[in-house]
Write a protein that binds this DNA or RNA. Structure first.
Length: 675
DNA sequence: TGTGTCCGAGACGAA
DNA sequence: CTCGGACACA
């Protein structure tokens, strides 16, 4: 404990010891940002601050987990009493604790992204707007953006400039009605309701703010409007706020983050101290050189250059591949070679990509090469059909108003309730402003629905009634077992999936939900069903955690990689259309894409290899593609005329070197491509 | 009502 | 290619 400060450089030490009042730490990638924030918390504890008074907020579960672990290793088990978590989780707990003050039902349901989409579709249907006129996905993300910019549906209506805007604003209104009617909150609501609590209930704000005397915010460049105001409300009495961030790593503008927040910090909190961390302890000079060359093409930024404390290393390689299969087998071959020659462990490697579907090719290749890997993010455990089915039963039990849960399980397993009846039920429910469940019941009672669907409804009601009895016991794992038994879900799995192996796999997924519930109840003695579901909605797959100790290659998106570091990094798919991503570029977001590239480069400690493909399978067809403009920036060259146009000039194909890879031997490395 | 099949659109990122 | 939605049948 005593030498907490000894291992820090001057700037870091200043950041750690400046404990009171507002403090801005501008920390470039790899300059010990997490180290500073955790040592700072440990230092506070050493100074006599109780851990319960410390609040540390991050953006991802992964960052929160890592911070908690590092804090514990610095300050011991007492550090578990500190509040460390994501904004969303922190807010969700606040809301739950003060549900009454917010007029929220205690067992409010969570509207996850697929429910959001159904809600938007429902709103469009109600408004008689064709999905061809307004793409539900576009509307949904626009609504989310509104909410994260604290723009109400009335304001959205006022500022609408064309028909599309108006339709989306009306959809926004309906969407909100839909959520309230079904006692649901979406992810954005966590922030908004917490903010309402803090800004409208002064007594409660005082009480909550007094609990956290020292507040630290990680990745401050990613805060959006509600997050900023939540923080402001929490610290306004004591102003003990430390924010850490890097404008060059702002990659969440699409979620409403506003880089200006970090640039304006000193304006928002007058008299703030300011510390800059510029010595990079993570990467070699070559890697930082590459990072600097790319990021300096962004016009609006704090001028800063990372300086390597490690010195020179090996050259950053840029490799052209024929297609994504070759790319994958090249990377797999290299990793295997280096591990077999005992240069590295699997755990030292990361493969970073821009989109969530790129990992597919890599997964297949790594598996067939017998290389252990873990895929971070991606289609999560909670998106699996069988898991969603089981959770839908639980959601309906916790919140009978949960329409999408009801629609999901109404006929799963099949019990004679077809699409026709469900459509009528939903129609009626919308008409009456009532829940689908109650509408169904009244229609059955009135004889408007009879025969098979009515019998099915009775059967379903019986299942839920019995489950409800078990629910009263408060034993979640047992409740889930009961639901599985009542629905005969095992048989349903066997009915759907032909082969035995798949059946086992799916059933295991179901059993894992039981395990989740068991471990939730071990941790929260009085945890009820609603809070279990609420917590679950914010969980990424916690099973990663256990496997973390294993020696595995990490496969993930750039967004998921922020804050992490690996000895050897493969940054893959560096093509126009992927990085920068086509859609992001079209929306004028090339600068943010460049920051993503910067984030990717700066994850590497010792060795960085960048790959791109000459062609790539899209929509089942092989399509030519050409190297990213960022590769030209890396080489300090200008892309040829017409580079950024949709179709590639034929010259491109020749300019792309395509080294082939043989699996067993180490592939020839070609430092630098001939761009 | 349940099941099968065809068709067309499609994919950015996280909590 | 791969999923969801629409449609045709039993």
């Amino acid at each position: 404990m005593t030498d907490l400060l000894a291992s820090l450089n001057d700037a870091q030490r200043r950041a750690v010891t400046c404990t009171d009042g507002p403090l801005l730490v501008l920390a470039g990638a790899g300059t010990g940002k997490t180290r500073v924030i955790t040592v700072r918390a440990a230092h506070l504890m050493q100074q006599g601050v109780a851990p319960e008074q410390i609040l540390m907020v991050t953006f991802t579960n992964k960052a929160a987990r890592e911070m908690q672990e590092r804090l514990c290793s610095l300050a011991g088990a007492a550090a578990n009493q500190a509040t460390v978590g994501t904004f969303h989780r922190f807010c969700m707990r606040l809301i739950r604790e003060h549900a009454a003050a917010l007029d929220l039902p205690p067992g409010f349901g969570i509207c996850d992204s697929s429910d959001q989409l159904s809600a938007v579709k429902g709103a469009l249907r109600e408004l008689r707007i064709a999905e061809t006129a307004v793409d539900p996905r576009a509307a949904q993300s626009k609504i989310s953006l509104f909410k994260n910019a604290l723009i109400s549906s009335e304001q959205a209506m006022d500022q609408a400039e064309d028909d599309w805007d108006i339709m989306v604003a009306r959809c926004y209104t309906k969407y909100e009605e839909h959520l309230r009617r079904h006692r649901m909150l979406d992810f954005d609501d966590f922030l908004l309701f917490a903010l309402r609590l803090l800004e409208e209930k002064e007594e409660l704000r005082k009480q909550i703010a007094a609990r956290y005397r020292y507040v630290m915010v990680d990745e401050y460049q990613d805060t959006n409007a509600p997050q900023y105001r939540i923080v402001r409300a929490l610290v306004q009495d004591h102003r003990n706020l430390c924010v850490v961030g890097d404008d060059d790593q702002s990659i969440y503008a699409w979620r409403g983050a506003d880089v200006r927040r970090i640039l304006d910090f000193e304006k928002d909190f007058p008299g703030a101290e300011n510390v800059r961390l510029e010595t990079n302890y993570r990467s070699t000079a070559e890697i930082l050189d590459a990072a600097n060359k790319v990021i300096r093409n962004n016009p609006k930024r704090h001028d800063k250059e990372l300086i390597s404390a490690l010195g020179a290393g090996s050259t950053v390689s840029v490799m052209g591949m024929e297609d994504e299969d070759h790319e994958a087998s090249f990377v797999a071959g290299e990793i295997r070679y280096q591990v077999e020659s005992q240069e590295e462990r699997y755990g030292d490697f990361a493969i970073l990509c821009r989109t969530g579907q790129q990992p597919r090719a890599f997964e297949a290749e790594l598996r067939s090469a017998g290389i252990p890997y873990r895929l971070v993010g991606g289609t999560s455990f909670f998106d699996r059909k069988e898991v969603r089915d089981v959770l839908a039963y639980l959601r309906l039990l916790a919140n009978p108003a949960d329409e999408s849960a009801f629609l999901r399980i109404a006929n799963t397993p099949p019990r004679g309730i077809g699409k026709g009846s469900l459509d009528r039920v939903v129609e009626r429910a919308t008409e009456l402003g009532d829940t689908a469940w109650r509408a169904f019941r009244s229609m059955v009672d009135a004889g408007e629905i009879s025969g098979a669907p009515a019998r099915g409804f009775t059967a379903l009601r019986e299942i839920l009634n019995q489950a409800h009895v078990v629910l009263q016991e408060g034993d979640l794992p047992r409740l889930i077992q009961e639901v599985l038994a009542l629905t005969n879900y095992r048989a349903e799995i066997e009915r759907i999936y032909g082969d035995h192996e798949t059946q086992e796999l799916r059933w295991n997924g179901v059993l894992e939900v039981v395990d989740f519930a068991a471990s939730f109840q071990r941790k929260n003695k009085k945890g009820d069903l609603a809070s279990f579901l609420q917590e679950l909605s914010l969980s990424t797959d916690e099973r990663d955690k256990e496997e973390d100790s294993g020696d595995q290659v990490t496969l993930m998106t750039l967004h998921a990689a922020k804050g992490l570091e690996f000895r050897r990094v493969y940054l893959v798919g560096l093509e126009e259309g992927i990085l920068p991503h086509k859609r992001a570029a079209a929306e004028g977001g090339v600068e943010e894409e460049r920051r993503l590239m910067y984030v990717g480069i700066t994850r590497a400690q010792q060795d960085l290899t960048i790959t791109f493909c000459g062609s790539r399978t899209r929509f089942g067809k092989l399509q030519p593609c050409h190297p990213s403009r960022f590769l030209f920036e890396l080489k300090e060259k200008t892309p040829p005329e017409g580079w950024l146009a949709t179709d590639a000039p034929s010259v491109v194909q020749e300019a792309v070197p395509v080294p082939r890879n043989t699996k067993k031997k180490r592939p020839a490395r070609r430092p630098g491509s001939r761009l």
